[in-house]
Structures are given as C-alpha cells and as structure tokens.
C-alpha cells in the first residue's frame, strides 16, 4: 500500500470513528432539555417515588464527559424552573459520570444521557436494584429498559415503558399515564 493509500485509509477510518462518536454522543436539543427540566421533579412527585422523598427530591444526572455541558445545562434549567424546589421539597441534583453510579443509590430518579450499551445496562441494573426511576434523553433506550423518555413526534409527550416500570415496582399517577404514550417493543422503529 502506498503512503497516499495508507493516508486515505486513515482518513476513512477516522471518518468512520467520528461518525460513530457523533452517533453515540449526539448533541442535545435545548428545548427538549428544557421540557425534561420541567418534567423530572414532577415525575418523582407523580410516582410512587414520592414515598422515598424525605425533605428533598434527589435526582441523579448521569452522563459521559462528552455530554458534561449538556448535563450542566439541564441542571441549570431545573434550578431555573424550580429555584425554591417544588411543593415544599427542595431539589438536590447529583451530576455523575456513569463510572460513579454508586453515588446515586439514594436518588429517586436517574436521568441518563447517551452512553455505551454496557453503561446503560449497568445503570438500569443499578436502578432496578434500588428502585430508582430511570429517564433517558434518547427514546431508543426504552428498548433497553429505561422507564421514561420523550416521544418527539408531531407533539412531544412522555413516553412510558410500562413493562420496565412495573418490573422496577414503580407506580404512576393515572393522569400522567393519560397524557403519555405507552412504549411497546413493536414500536421500536416508529420514532
């Protein structure tokens, strides 16, 4: 192989890698994050997770280093929406890399930015173990067993994976169920 050929192969490989990375670590829409910021504390209060809340709503935001800015942005939006907390509860936000998942064991909610499949499975296992509500930015993760995401169609509505929610032993307010779209395995390619 010539020098030029080697260079082309490298460029092609780099391009493929960059495509993978962009696919894996996608950029996050600020408006969608804004909706999540509004929803997250409410999901806790509208679910059986409320029973776990003592004085403050504890939510854990898990992300890869690549998504740190988006995670910080989300937390900023949450604080902006609920500066004094909600319904007499203060909001405690824990931002961790996926590697520091253990720090979230007392949280009522895990918000998951995109990560590797391995991290996802670990996180979901962890959440199931500690009965923590899981919410992902990416609706594709519902297929992996995440509890809630957002359905971004003609309208934006909560997207619930009822089977995983039931598996985690979490219950939701009926009203929330009525405004949400229910995920099923058949719908994997619909969104």
């Amino acid at each position: 192989m010539s020098k030029r050929g080697i260079r082309n192969v490298f460029i092609l490989f780099s391009l493929l890698l960059s495509m993978n990375a962009s696919n894996l670590y996608a950029s996050y829409d600020e408006d969608t994050l804004d909706i999540f910021a509004k929803m997250l504390p409410r999901f806790v209060l509208m679910s059986s997770q409320l029973h776990k809340v003592k004085e403050e709503i504890e939510m854990c935001v898990l992300y890869e280093k690549l998504d740190e800015r988006s995670a910080i942005s989300l937390m900023g939006k949450i604080h902006a929406n609920y500066p004094a907390g909600i319904k007499n509860y203060k909001i405690k936000l824990i931002d961790k890399y996926y590697q520091h998942l253990e720090s979230c064991k007392n949280a009522q909610l895990l918000f998951m930015f995109d990560t590797t499949e391995e991290n996802i499975q670990q996180s979901l296992h962890f959440a199931k173990l500690h009965q923590i509500l899981t919410i992902s930015y990416n609706a594709d993760l519902l297929a992996d067993g995440v509890n809630i995401s957002l359905y971004l169609g003609r309208k934006i509505i909560p997207f619930l994976n009822v089977s995983s929610i039931n598996a985690n032993g979490i219950e939701f307010d009926n009203t929330l169920l009525r405004v949400s779209k229910i995920y099923s395995a058949d719908m994997k390619n619909e969104y």
Partner: peptide
C-alpha cells in the same frame, strides 16, 4: 382539566392542542 393542567405544567402545549 387535570390532563390539560398536567400538560401545561409539563410545558407540553402541543400535546394539549392535539388533545
């Protein structure tokens, strides 16, 4: 009304409109 309220509180105005 609870659904509309919830949609408003969640900021889901487009969902509200469709509903």
């Amino acid at each position: 009304s609870p659904i509309i309220s919830l949609n408003i509180s969640l900021g889901l105005s487009s969902s509200n409109n469709e509903y």
